[in-house]
Amino acid sequence: MSNLQPTKGSAKEAAGLRYPTNGKTIYHRPLNRTKTAELSGASFAYLFSEMVNYASKKIVSIQDLEKRLNTAGHPLGLKLLDLLLYREPARTQTRPLTIIQLLHFIKLTLWGHLFGRAADGLEKSSDPATPDEYMIIDNEPLVNRYVSVPRNMDQLNCAAFVAGVVEGVCDGAGFPARVTAHTVRQPGEEEGKEMWPGRTVFLLKFAPEVMEREGFLGKG
């Protein structure tokens, strides 16, 4: 244990960093220790509720609020990409090289790590004018479980936070993209009678250079 002791503990303490009495910080823990650990859903709900509250102070528009939630999630995605790749079995431990690989990684690994299940769907935009758009579908986003959006803000979807995480993963993997969250009703269902009233579509719009690269890879 003594060899884990930070060498200049007392000097760092004076600078304002505090160490636990046994000298073991979060960086001394093995990265896989919390792999299967679970968190309390209620404490997350309260924390997220306060995050949304904080983000909605002094906003000019709904887009502003979504932007802030997105920004809060972005660094989380960048860090999660590294952690999740590290935890993959050794032979699949390469970073995703194509859009499809990346989307599968997000749908299965990222969703599995964050929400304990895979995302409910993956689609490519059917519109020929926007070949750079892909969609990840979640029927009941965990972050929105207890959130009721007021009538006057009905275009808001608080899953913008998750969109930020996804955007962070895409950016970190070298696929710069813009990700937004939208509440979209399942086609053919009436309002108020839907099976999944909180069905959320995460729209990923990749940057032009990504599409260009993808085109070259396809030919090769």
Partner: peptide
């Protein structure tokens, strides 16, 4: 669950939460 954990609910104010209703 559905009122107190809703970020848009203000304490002591009338409850208007779709999720709670549902």
């Amino acid at each position: 669950d559905y009122v107190m954990k809703n970020p848009f609910y203000q304490l002591e104010m009338p409850v208007r939460c779709d999720m709670f209703d549902r």
